[in-house]
Every structure is written in structure tokens, then in C-alpha cells.
Computed example of a mutant assay.
Amino acid sequence: MGKAKAWGGVIGFVLVVGACNSVSGNSDDTTTPSSTPAAQDATAIAIPPSAAPMTTAPAARFECRSVDTVYDGDRTCHPGGEQVIVTRAIDGDTVELADGRRIRLLGVDAPEADTCAGPGATEFTRSKVQGRAVMLHKEPGVDLDPYGRTLAYLQFGPYFATDLGNELVLEGWATPYEGGQANTTYMDNIRSSHGIAEYRPNGIYAHPCGSPKVYGDDDGDGTPDYDDHVNVDAPNLPDGSLTGGYCARKWWC
């Protein structure tokens, strides 16, 4: 009697295990549902480009939800645009794309690669965008320059929020390109960045390629204007310890 009960328990266990495998799908059928909510969410979320160099077009396209209608170069993404890969920095303001197009940045002018600050400007652009995904934005009605290069703006970095031209100017590697085809809003921002950069000893404003401006030096002689009053003869002033016959940043000068 004991052996019969034992064999009955074993048979019952085998039947239960077989039924569980049939229900859970652990048989020869290894197919999975074609789509799940998690899979749909994963494909809908656009992933910003990573810092790792890239040589092929990214699978995901970043969608900017900004309401800007005019490209302004501020540190925010801009709607629209074309996601591309930069394969080479030709110089500070010119790059080559994976599809062979050459892009000349609108609104800025960097030194040529073979001039004093040229290698530094080229290296700056290379460090920011070469081998990476960027967003290309066109100015309405603007296409190619006389050399066949596409005139455009480029944004890079997380969420494509950083304008390459503005960064070049702000860090002293380029100047505003007046008389070009960039829009006025963008150019106003570029000029503001230039107004900051020209007082810093960076890029084209650093030795040996140049020197920064001096605060308070409106006449361009390299010193603050209040220093121009030092050692000025003042024969009509009374002699004494306060005057000494000259002005030295005194209130009456």
C-alpha cells in the first residue's frame, strides 16, 4: 500500500509540471509578442547623442519642443533641422559631413587653418563635433556659397542645445561675419558673445596672435582712459602736497 501511494504522488507531480509548462509557454514555442508597452515607449523616446565618436547616422531622432520660429543661437534646442554626422573639421568654421557635404557656418568667421590662430580654431571645432551627431539648421532662402558649401547653423551636445558658431566666437576663435546671410536675431547674439570674448586672452586675442581689449580703454591706446590723466601739467593749480603740479586721478582731473 505504501509503494502504491508513492507512485501515485510521482505521477501527479509530473502531470502538474507538464500543465504549468504548457500554460507558461516553456515548450518548443519560443515566440514573444511583437510589441509591448515597454517596447513602444523605448522607440518613442529620442536619445540625445553621446560623447562617443560616431561614424554612422544615429537611429533615434531628437525632437525639439521649442516654439522658436527664428534660429537665434541661444543655448536651447531649435525645432526642425536635419540630424547629421560630422566626419572632419576642415577649419574652425567649415566641416565635412558623412554624406560628403561641406558646411560653412553662417554668421561667423574663423581664421584659416594655415594662419596664426587657425590650428587652434580648427582643433576647437574638431573637439566639439568631429565624429559626432549634430543638428543642421538652414536659414530660409539660403543655400550654397560661391564655393559650393552649404551655408547653415550647427547645434551639438546634449539635446542639440549648443550653437557651434556662437561657441567659436565666445571662446575667441572667431568673429562675427558682418554682411552675411545669417538672420539679425542670430547676429545680435553673436555680437554680444564677441563683446565678451574680445576682453579675454583666448584664441585670436591671445599671444602671439593678438591681445585682449582693456576695460575702460575707449580710445584704443591699451590703457584705461582714466590713466591718460596721469602726469598732465597743470600750471594754474596751486603748489602743494595735494597737487604737486599734476593730476593723478584726483577728483578735479
Rank of each mutant, 00 (worst) to 15 (best):
A59W: 02
G73V: 10
G73Y: 04
G80Y: 03
A60M: 01
S66F: 08
T31N: 08
P37D: 13
I45Q: 06
P33H: 05
G73N: 06
T76K: 11
D29R: 08
P48G: 04
A38E: 13
T55H: 02
D72M: 05
S34T: 10
G80D: 03
T55K: 01
C64V: 04
A52R: 06
A42N: 08
S34K: 14
D72R: 05
Q83R: 12
P37Y: 15
T56C: 09
C77A: 15
Q83G: 07
G81K: 13
R75P: 07
A57N: 11
G73H: 03
A46P: 02
F62S: 10
T30R: 05
D29N: 15
E82V: 04
P48L: 11
R65G: 12
T36K: 06
A46F: 02
A42E: 09
T43D: 05
D74M: 13
E82R: 03
T36G: 03
R65K: 12
Y71K: 07
P53H: 02
S66D: 15
Q83W: 03
A52S: 14
M54C: 09
R61V: 15
S34A: 12
Y71E: 12
F62G: 08
D41G: 04
I85P: 08
T31K: 08
D41V: 10
P33S: 10
P48W: 10
D68T: 08
A44M: 09
T30L: 06
P79Q: 13
A42G: 04
T36N: 04
T55R: 02
A46M: 01
V67N: 14
P79D: 13
E63D: 13
T32V: 14
S35D: 03
P48E: 12
P58G: 00
T43S: 09
S35P: 01
P33T: 10
P37T: 15
G80F: 01
P79K: 10
E63R: 05
